[in-house]
C-alpha cells in the first residue's frame, strides 16, 4: 500500500495534520495558515497566478510561548530542523522542520508585517479562530479577515509584482465592511504598514518607521544594501537596530552547511562574511547616527 508518488498537496495536508496532532499532544496552540488552510472566502487574496501554484510546505503560526515545546515534541516524533529561525528569512520568523515522506513544516513564531507583540498578536488571532477539516482532521485556522490579512501581508513582501497587483485588485473588490474588518485587525496587531503596502495605501503611513522597509519590499527593491538599511531603520529602538543590522550581516550557518554539504568551519564562516563586514558596519553606523563626519 506504499506509494512513492504521493501528490505534493497530500504531503502538505499530512504535514498539517501531524503538526496539529503533536501540538494537541503537548498542549501547544497553533493556527494553520496559507496553502490548504485558506478558506474559499479568502481565496481571492492568493492572486490568480503566483499564489495558485500551490504550497509545498505546511505553514503553521505557533503561539510564541509554545514554540519550543512544539519543536521539542516534533523532534521526539522524528522531525529534524532544516533551518532554525535565524537561518531563515531576514525576518527570522519561521523555522523549517522536515520528516521523511511528508512536506516540510514551517513553524512561524510571528508573521512578517505584524509589528506588535507576537504573543498579544497571536492571542488576537487565536480568540477569533475557526475550525476547518484538513486531511480529515479538525485544525484551527484564523478568522476570514485574518486569513485575508495574512495573504495580503505575504504578498506585500513583493516576491512577485504581478501577484501583488492581483491582491490589490482583490482588496478593491472587497466590501467596505470586509475591508474595515481587516483594517481593524491590522490596527490591533500593529500590521498597518505592511497592510498598507499590500493594499496600495503606503502614503497613509508615511511617518511610520517601517514605511521605507515595506515600500522597498513591495516595490521589489533589488538592492540588498538598501533593503538592509530599511530593515535597520524599521527596528523599534537603537539597540534592536544594532542587533538587527549585525544579525543580517552574519552568514546563515545552516544555509552555509547545506550549500557546502558539511558543517561550516570557522574559516568558512569568515570567508562567507566576505567584504560585507566593513561595508555593512559603515552603513549601520551612518543609519544609527554614529558616524558623524564620515560618509560611508
Amino acid at each position: 500500500m506504499r506509494d512513492a508518488t504521493m501528490p505534493v498537496r497530500t504531503a502538505v495536508a499530512f504535514a498539517h495534520a501531524v503538526v496539529q496532532f503533536v501540538a494537541e499532544e503537548v498542549g501547544a496552540e497553533v493556527l494553520h495558515i496559507k496553502g490548504p488552510a485558506v478558506e474559499l472566502e479568502a481565496e481571492a487574496m492568493r492572486g490568480r497566478g503566483y499564489g495558485n501554484r500551490g504550497s509545498v510546505d505546511a505553514d503553521v503560526l505557533v503561539r510564541p510561548s509554545h514554540v519550543q515545546r512544539l519543536e521539542r515534541a516534533l523532534a521526539m516524533h522524528g522531525w529534524t530542523v532544516l533551518y532554525e529561525f535565524e537561518d531563515g528569512s531576514p525576518f527570522e520568523h519561521a523555522a523549517t522542520l522536515a520528516r521523511q515522506g511528508l512536506a516540510n513544516a514551517d513553524l512561524h513564531r510571528y508573521f512578517p508585517g505584524v509589528e506588535g507583540d507576537p504573543e498579544k498578536a497571536f492571542e488576537r488571532l487565536w480568540a477569533s479562530r475557526r475550525t476547518v477539516v484538513l486531511a480529515g482532521r479538525d485544525v484551527c485556522v484564523p478568522s476570514i479577515p485574518a486569513q485575508r490579512m495574512i495573504l495580503i501581508l505575504h504578498a506585500a513582501r513583493g516576491r512577485s509584482t504581478a501577484h501583488l497587483a492581483e491582491v490589490r485588485e482583490a482588496w478593491l473588490e472587497l466590501s467596505p465592511a470586509d475591508q474595515l474588518a481587516i483594517d481593524d485587525l491590522a490596527r490591533d496587531v500593529d500590521a498597518r504598514v505592511a497592510l498598507a503596502a499590500g493594499t496600495g495605501r503606503l502614503d497613509t503611513v508615511k511617518s511610520a518607521r517601517s514605511h521605507d522597509l515595506w515600500l522597498a519590499l513591495s516595490e521589489g527593491e533589488a538592492s540588498q544594501a538598501r533593503l538592509w538599511r530599511a530593515r535597520v531603520r524599521a527596528a523599534p529602538s537603537r539597540k534592536s537596530a544594532m542587533r538587527t543590522g549585525l544579525r543580517l550581516l552574519l552568514p546563515k550557518r545552516q544555509r552555509l552547511a547545506v550549500a557546502l554539504g558539511r558543517p561550516p568551519t570557522t574559516w568558512d564562516m569568515v570567508r562567507a562574511f566576505g567584504g560585507q563586514i566593513g561595508r555593512g558596519t559603515r552603513a549601520l553606523a551612518r543609519d544609527l547616527g554614529l558616524d558623524r563626519g564620515r560618509r560611508a
Partner: peptide, 14 residues
Amino acid sequence: VYLLSLPDGVPLVL
C-alpha cells in the same frame, strides 16, 4: 485514498 497514521506512520495508498 492516501492514509497516514498519526503522528509517526508512513503514508499509505489505496
